[in-house]
Design a protein around this nucleic acid. Structure first.
Lengths: 336, 336
DNA sequence: AGCATTCTCCAAAACGTTTTGGGAGTCAAC
DNA sequence: GTTGACTCCCAAAACGTTTTGGAGAATGCT
């Protein structure tokens, strides 16, 4: 309840001294410092955040835009990542605000609203697009930011991403080595960088193996999208014997399509993200995951370094993608 | 980039007049108001948020605490709810900050940190416990808040909740009517209100039917928890023929246990939450869901009304729980 | 003693906004 | 020509903090 003025008055000291004592400056004697700290403690004093922010010209806030399209903000573990990130930012005195994008408003506008009103010190961007107007805007304003996912921006910016190209290429080659020749891809919306790069990984492997790249269907990155895309591929005259899916959610949707069409045990399948749910599907879903501990913490750390002014080139993390061996990829490559 | 002083200077007006023109006060002439608005527009003026907050003694921020226990912040659709809520709060000039609770810190401490530092105008609480210290604290400080889930607090507070008791009672009675006599319950941690009330609903139905309430196992509200709890019930000498699960995630874990133990098609099962994933499990998961459109918007609306000072009694919403008929609940009640 | 140095402390300014309490000026009524 | 009402504007205070630029006293050094 108390503010600095009251605290100073009750101690017979000036506001300046109390403020500096609490901040641990050396120009206040150890004795007074202890006395001030003690008094602040018992009075339950907390500096008023708005006042500090105004004076220090820092918002102590970071915003993350949450895409509302396509109907779903992100993979289910996404909030865990945000939570981990917020936790580490909080240790540095920054709070994380979530900035959903209402229908009919562009993500760019939301960025502008936060940046131009000096409501945030930095931004977090997720679900990057290949050409991402948010990135361009933030670069032009010189606001620190980190993206989850790369973009095709010509000027470098900080990011964390998994090497989806290598992951999907490896998964496809693995199927090829197991004898599969009809390997399909269930792709996410290609304007997203992650979806595009995963598709390219699959495509590169197919071309290396001299296989046709006709078995590709695109859908929303959700169960339903994967389901519909899988049905589309299963209608082909020469069906796939294996499916590489852009996300676990799409893979889970595809699993249902497989069950409906061929009883579910004929076609191999692999997803990406390592959702906890994947261990409980039928069959348990083989998948891939970005390596690295605690994505949220890494995210926070990169952001703090970006705020501290480190150059973008030093703040780019491309993580390897590792295979998670469960069961769904182990079906024999029988022609349907 | 501009502030009020610069804007006023460039217009040859006082700061006061510019400020009041922008806020639409009637004591500035229509002509000047238009002129000011025009200039503000072209200068890209946005009031400095920190300054306004300091002056108005409002943080323009709302925090939601995110429990980090047990290893997972909430059901997968939880972020959608938060996002919807944040969107509606933003329309009222409030931003939503997420406040994760680090391991080793109590949720209460996090609340205090935000409230005592006047960092927020109100709070959102999720995953309420039967006896919730956060609720007691916020009530004692007189800070507006809304909980997602009821508590056993003696003094009323605003909440939104589903009628888990009625839902689980009805589900259990439905199984009884279908001929089941060994109906088990997979319960969540009983300190949580939602878990406790769902268990009581099952129990009430069992007692009404004169059935023993021995088939109950408790676990973490995740797939793994449901899996282990189901295994425990399936080890009983007299197995259940139907399972009522506290959450869909637990139900999905239980589905795997059923597949492992009896091939998966013998025992009926029903969950709660209506996760999108449930439509894609094998078999598709019958479940329950709280009725009502757009939970996030309702949440935001209650919060705004709480801030406006409406009494808690008027801000309590108990929603009916409706059954979602898929397939997993339709197994015949064969003794195992 | 005189001077520089060090140790404590503080008054005042600044951050950018909103709001209070008027102050001119105009106009109509008396 | 005074009064009152009304319109349009503004100076200054306030919100609570951090930081600048010293001031005063004590100490050390020559």
């Amino acid at each position: 309840m108390a503010n600095l003025k009251q605290l100073a008055h009750s101690l017979g000291l000036s506001i300046t001294t109390v403020s500096r004592a609490l901040d641990g400056y050396s120009d206040v004697s150890a004795a007074t410092r202890a006395r001030v700290r003690e008094a602040a403690e018992t009075a339950g004093y907390r500096p008023n955040a708005s006042a500090r922010r105004l004076r220090k010209q820092r918002a102590e806030l970071v915003a993350v835009t949450l895409p509302s399209d396509p109907g779903h903000v992100g993979p289910p573990h996404f909030l865990d990542m945000l939570s981990g990130c917020a936790e580490h930012l909080a240790a540095a005195g920054l709070n994380l605000v979530i900035a959903p994008v209402p229908r009919g408003v562009s993500e760019l506008e939301i960025c502008q609203r936060f940046v131009d009103g000096r409501r945030v010190d930095a931004m977090l961007l997720v679900r990057t697009k290949r050409k991402d107007e948010r990135v361009e805007y933030l670069q032009s304003r010189g606001i620190p930011f980190v993206t989850n996912g790369r973009t095709e921006s010509l000027v470098p910016h900080p990011f964390i991403d998994g090497d989806g190209f290598a992951g999907f290429r490896a998964a496809t080659l693995r199927f090829h080595a197991a004898g599969h020749r009809r390997i399909g891809h269930i792709a996410g919306p290609q304007e997203y960088y992650f979806a595009h790069v995963r598709r390219r990984g699959w495509q590169a492997a197919m071309e290396e193996c001299g296989l046709a790249i006709d078995l590709c269907a695109e859908g929303a990155p959700l169960e339903q999208g994967g389901y519909l895309a899988a049905l589309e591929l299963l209608r082909q005259p020469s069906r796939p014997t294996a499916l590489v899916c852009a996300t676990d959610e799409m893979a889970i949707g595809a699993l249902r399509a497989l069950r409906e069409v061929d009883g579910g045990s004929q076609i191999s399948i692999v997803g990406h993200d390592d959702l906890p749910m994947g261990a409980f599907t039928s069959p348990p879903l083989s998948t891939m995951r970005m390596t690295g501990e605690n994505l949220g913490a890494t995210f926070a750390s990169l952001l703090l370094r970006a705020i501290a002014g480190e150059p973008a080139e030093d703040l780019q993390e491309l993580h390897a993608v590792e295979f998670v061996d469960r069961d769904s990829h182990r079906r024999p490559p029988l022609a349907a």
